[in-house]
Design a protein around this nucleic acid. Structure first.
Length: 339
DNA sequence: CACGGACA
DNA sequence: TGTCCGTGG
């Protein structure tokens, strides 16, 4: 995960029902990655079809999206475009970590340590272009819109929320706050209980929203200052200063007024400070997208999931029932809009 | 992650 | 009705 400013933000527990009838811009990469890393067998192997293609992301995308639609929530998936050049070293770092995790996964398997194997396996998760393409195909069969951002998906989702096209940006990552989304929703899921890394321990993960303005008011800072805190801490686009987390970053920025002043007074070295700041404050986004939810093509979904990827027919059929419910709910909604 | 069968 | 646990592909 990237930037962790959870310690200084105000999160509100919410019910999935609060989002009924509302559009949410989901960080597609974030959502699929979550599925890819968590939908795995006990030894860490992801779900795969008989050709060896990973299918965890498809399983997750189908169930999750069907559930949201059934609840009357209208997701629009936003995928990352071309990464900013300042992100290159972060991406390289991630690649290296995954390679190391692969070795440790094999070692854990050899030792018979399944708990460790699973954790290491999750760390190897690599969402490929193909996987994203497959998921997009599925979304299209489900009638769910998707767009590819010019650059960062989170920036695009935030922009769409600022415009009022969607109610909130959905992601597990907090970067969206820096990109300026007025509302971030995390844990947009049905099931509450989730297993912690260490066995036996369960936590209930509830959907929550983070309101940007309320958070800024509570902290007594501006969005620019929030961005500065992030850049001092380090983001996907820069390294940040060792020893500076959300608390210290907040304190310094409030004390000196701005990140620039903190750097000057404290003689910190933050390469590309202005450029990184600009990525968050003036991100590359587009208005070229269409928010349109179509009726699902149930036959195509069946064919895609069962014939192409070997999912069991009864399972998929039961999900299609949800899609039918969603369809009815949607037509009811259009009536509501007319009257 | 999400589901469903087992069990209380 | 609620929770635990194994499985899905």
């Amino acid at each position: 995960m990237g930037l962790d400013i959870s310690g200084i933000l105000v999160a509100n527990k919410v019910k999935l029902d609060d989002f009924k009838g509302r559009a949410i811009a989901l960080d597609g990469y974030n959502v699929l990655y979550q599925f890819l890393s968590s939908i795995r067998g006990p030894d860490g192997t992801p779900l795969m079809d008989d050709k060896g293609r990973v299918t965890s992301h498809l399983s997750g995308a189908l169930y999750r999206t069907a559930n949201l639609l059934e609840m009357g929530i209208k997701p629009i998936f936003v995928f990352d475009g071309k990464p900013h050049y300042l992100k290159k070293s972060t991406l390289a770092e991630r690649r290296a970590r995954k390679e190391k995790a692969k070795i440790e996964w094999d070692e854990a398997l050899a030792e018979g340590d399944m708990e460790k194997a699973r954790t290491k396996a999750q760390q190897t998760s690599k969402l490929t272009r193909e996987m994203v393409g497959e998921a997009i195909k599925l979304l299209e069969f489900m009638g769910v819109p998707h767009i590819t951002a010019p650059q960062e998906g989170e920036a695009q989702a935030s922009y769409m929320t600022m415009k009022g096209d969607v109610y909130a940006a959905g992601s597990q990552d907090f970067d969206s706050m820096l990109f300026g989304t007025p509302l971030l929703v995390r844990n947009l899921t049905l099931s509450g209980r989730r297993k912690m890394p260490r066995r036996q321990v369960y936590v209930t993960v509830e959907p929550e929203t983070i309101d940007l303005q309320a958070s800024l008011d509570a902290l007594g800072i501006t969005r620019e200052q929030l961005v500065d805190i992030g850049v001092l801490m380090g983001t996907d686009f820069n390294e940040g200063i060792k020893g500076i987390g959300p608390k210290k970053g907040l304190k310094l920025v409030k004390e000196f007024g701005s990140g620039e002043e903190v750097i000057k007074q404290k003689k910190f070295d933050v390469p590309s400070f202005d450029a990184v700041r600009k990525i968050f404050l003036e991100p590359e986004v587009t208005d070229d997208y269409e928010m349109k939810w179509n009726d699902p093509d149930l036959d195509k979904i069946m064919e895609f999931m069962c014939e192409d990827y070997g999912f069991s027919k009864p399972r998929i059929e039961s999900i299609l029932g949800k899609m039918e419910t969603a369809k009815k709910a949607r037509s009811q909604q259009s009536l509501d809009q007319w009257f």
